[in-house]
Design a protein around this nucleic acid. Structure first.
Lengths: 345, 345
DNA sequence: TCTATTTTTGCAAACGATTGCAATTTGTGA
DNA sequence: TCACAAATTGCAATCGTTTGCAAAAATAGA
């Protein structure tokens, strides 16, 4: 053996480390052991029992690396979170994290493992190709398009098993699951206006297409109803949000009586700033958020918001991906958001 | 070839799929290609350039499965989140999710991938052995001991590369990183009493050892100061918390003027219930939370709380794990929490 | 008892990359 | 120009499991 000294230090003679070791102990061939442990039916019941017993006694489990190399599939789904402009945003973003939790549940249930990778596209040109080409994953779920829409489109043509959480654009080529942000925006604006608001503002970053769509929906309704609306750019990183909102509020003062926040997080910060300035909600200013995070129900007053069904989203992502894994070229899935009326409107 | 029909359908002749394909195109041996791509110095600069060029042109990346099998290491760290009693809790638990985010950052930076697995110990006896023995990970980080303390202890003896986020017990055998919960509890109680509270209550589940330690710390201080303290068991799943807290508040009524909440999430829910009952905070009742989540700064009034340094925790977990990967039997790391005084005390 | 089947097993070739050693090429100095 | 050292490259074994095919064993049928 040419690399004998590289060998693992743990060479306890009794130790069963490979399927061949086990085969020797059981007095059969490695092939038989493999078949027995993989639940394959081509093996005598008694032989299987014996093998399983030995495996259990020695706590043996077949090496997954080897298995996966041979079978040419990994049983792992890669989940990528691209951190676009606002690097610090998503890390604490409850929405994404909750989605991730549900994804983990769904995938586990279907027998897949989840490999998480956070990428900073600005520092890593071909993060997506790298992830896909690594041979470590059977398929990829991308959480959030961020500012990577085009790169994702490029990849989508040549790589089927990929599904993306995000906004759906007419004619796009990659398969996406996400809420109908435009509709959500409409619902929000309609509610604000119906509650008596006469001048609206959208609080949030309109760069990411999800948010852009929310704003677009709201604007459509506002224009139809003859109500003015403006966008007030606001970052979503917790440390900057508050100050930016405060500045906005000072500037707009009493000119706005209906606020549509891009996310609940922004809405909560806004609520607080309004209270600091002794503005009554909803009497003087009405607010609608987006997401319906748990916190939305804990604010004072409780927040009216547009709910995204996160669990359904996760399920959709996984279902579509699994179908794509079998070769289906699936359509995108757009989920309807729902208005949850509480007490800020 | 015995399994020629099993071969990948994508057998475009020009396609470079393996290191051998690339070797053929470049007119060298596979070994040389491997060395060139792995940045190994034993290869002529010109040859390397040529190989790298071809690789780039064809978007070729070495198969990780094969590489890792051969090198006997995976470059993947497993992160397990055991979901104990309160299954639905952690999924949305901002604290754990934020920790996960930081972990992903730290690991990525050190060149490791992160494999996430959520386990329900009640349904899966030997989840930890399975994870470790899968051959898919070089090491394991367990987020939260939940009710699995003993199982983790069992495994720790035979498996070095494991680090756990949680509470440190005198004499335990597994390596843990976590806040000094007892000290945190003391800080909270001291602050409540210093602010004038004369009768304390701990709101939270005292089963998990982290929370038990927080309560124990608070009780130690309370007893020393001659202030009564009681524990009011409260679940941490968002849907149940509110109602349980409401019930508690009705029961204790005016008998308690200082509340120590097991987490900020509970504190926020509590704040809201108090407001519903028109109890003034901090005038009538003082509150201290735990964690210092972003939300703590957004409540009305802003929440006084005990901060856990999540980023430092993640860094500690990764650093210790990497040292263990090299064979070090590292000590546990206990981080000091800090009292953040805002306006609820 | 002796074929003809059906079940079980063993054999050995993959999967694709890495790496010690040996062979080859290149470069150096006399 | 030649001997010798250094730098490159090729060869082939190896990581541990899976699986098509063939051989062996068990069972059935006559």
């Amino acid at each position: 053996m040419s690399e004998s000294e590289t060998q693992s230090p743990d060479k306890t003679p009794g130790r069963i480390r490979t399927i061949t070791d086990l085969a020797k102990v059981a007095g059969v061939s490695p092939g038989t052991v493999s078949r027995a442990l993989s639940g394959n039916s081509l093996v005598n019941a008694k032989t299987r029992e014996k093998i399983e017993l030995i495996a259990r006694e020695h706590g043996f489990r077949p090496n997954q690396m080897a298995s996966r190399l041979r079978r040419q599939k990994t049983g792992v789904i890669g989940v990528a979170i691209p951190l676009g402009h606002d690097v610090r945003q998503q890390i604490s973003d409850t929405f994404f994290m909750t989605l991730l939790g549900y994804l983990a549940d769904e995938l586990t249930e279907k027998g897949y493992d989840l490999m998480l990778r956070r990428v900073i596209p600005a520092q890593d040109e071909d993060w997506l190709d790298r992830f896909i080409g690594s041979g470590m994953v059977d398929g990829v779920i991308v959480i959030g398009q961020s500012d990577q829409f085009d790169r994702i489109e490029d990849v989508a043509d040549g790589y089927l098993p990929m599904v993306v959480w995000g906004n759906h654009q007419e004619g796009q080529r990659h398969c996406v699951v996400g809420s109908d942000n435009r509709l959500g925006g409409k619902l929000a604006a309609e509610k604000l206006i119906a509650s008596g608001a006469t001048s609206l503002a959208f609080l949030g970053d309109t760069q990411p297409i999800e948010f852009a769509a929310r704003f677009a929906g709201a604007r459509e309704v506002a224009e139809k109803m003859g109500v003015p609306i403006r966008a007030l750019p606001t970052h979503l990183s917790p440390d900057r949000t508050s100050k930016e909102i405060a500045d906005h509020l000072i500037r707009i003062d009493a000119n706005v009586d209906g606020i549509f926040a891009a996310t609940d997080t922004v809405a909560v910060a806004c609520l607080k700033e309004l209270r600091n300035r002794d503005v009554e909600v909803p009497e003087q200013v009405k607010i609608v958020g987006f997401d319906d995070l748990p916190i939305a129900n804990q604010t004072v007053p409780p927040l009216t918001t547009v709910r995204q069904d996160i669990a359904a989203g996760a399920k959709g992502l996984v279902d579509l991906l699994l179908r794509r894994l079998t070769g289906d070229d699936t359509e995108s899935l757009v989920l309807p958001p729902h208005l949850i009326v509480r007490e800020t409107t």
